[in-house]
């Protein structure tokens, strides 16, 4: 299926970004369609987090153009940006909850800032409904430091959902979670898309999770797109670096790869 048959939510063309003289992203084109789940994968340092930060507007591209939800970031000042960001949500790797506030106030914050003193009865209703979505009802009065890492992450997701964003970003949503919780989170993501038609961009290392949730996967290598497409297209990609990356992330295949290498040097003891 062609994802671009849907209206485009993110259109990036020729994106470039560097820190000092280290080129992080170069000449990168990225497009995301409405209600699509795009996963960005790649080894550490390939630029995937930077790409995510560009799309959220936490950093500005040094070259190329980027339109998100039809808005051109380069034409917006900080105030426009702050108003626009109410349409976005982001889940940070470690939750990024404000440590000085209890979970309830953490979740209420975007609502209170957006609508300036909304009625408290409404706030508490929305907060509880979002907490229920991520299975954290009852943690309202706890401080973030009293939650486990996985719970903090889910509370972060609940906070990102507070303003019902049209576009949701995830930075390593399943890292540090046990497989069952990770699968639960993936289910929540799919559920969100089904019910609310939310568009999502996920940066992850977790191949199993990526296969589960993505419509399309984009593999970044050295700041460029090595390949993008469905699971089959990625698996059948002939680029050796892409293959090496996929195999490194999936233990079953890693063995056969290392085996061939070792055979050049090792004669295995016979008769055992």
């Amino acid at each position: 299926m062609n994802a671009f048959a849907r209206p485009l939510v993110i259109e990036g063309e020729g994106l470039g970004f560097s820190y000092g003289n280290r080129q992080i992203l170069q000449e990168l084109d990225v497009r995301v369609g409405k209600a699509e789940i795009l996963t960005i994968m790649g080894p550490s340092g390939c630029g995937k987090t930077t790409l995510l930060r560009l799309m959220v507007g936490l950093a500005r591209p040094q070259s190329g153009s980027l339109k998100v939800l039809g808005e051109d970031y380069s034409r917006m000042d900080e105030d426009d940006m702050n108003r626009f960001r109410h349409r976005l949500g982001m889940c940070f790797q470690f939750g990024a909850l404000l440590n000085s506030l209890p979970i309830y106030d953490n979740l209420a914050l975007p609502l209170r800032e957006r609508w300036k003193s909304p009625p408290e009865s409404l706030v508490s209703l929305v907060v509880r409904s979002k907490l229920a979505m991520v299975g954290l009802l009852g943690t309202e009065s706890l401080l973030p430091s009293e939650l486990s890492g996985g719970m903090r992450k889910r509370a972060g997701l609940a906070r990102a959902l507070m303003l019902d964003p049209e576009l949701l970003f995830f930075d390593e949503p399943t890292s540090g979670l046990d497989p069952v919780t990770a699968a639960d989170l993936d289910r929540t993501v799919l559920e969100l898309r089904r019910r609310l038609q939310t568009t999502m961009v996920v940066v992850t290392h977790d191949l199993a999770s990526a296969w589960r949730i993505s419509d399309r996967i984009l593999v970044l290598l050295h700041g460029r797109i090595a390949v993008q497409g469905t699971r089959e297209e990625i698996e059948n990609c002939s680029d050796p670096e892409v293959q090496a990356f996929i195999q490194r992330e999936s233990p079953a295949r890693r063995q056969s790869l290392a085996g061939g290498f070792l055979d050049d040097y090792f004669e295995i003891e016979s008769g055992t």
Binding site: R83, R85, L109, P110, E113, R159
Partner: peptide, 12 residues
């Protein structure tokens, strides 16, 4: 801990 980024993303 990315709390500042989280605030920015919330439009704060």
């Amino acid at each position: 801990t990315e709390e500042m980024d989280a605030l920015r993303v919330m439009g704060i």
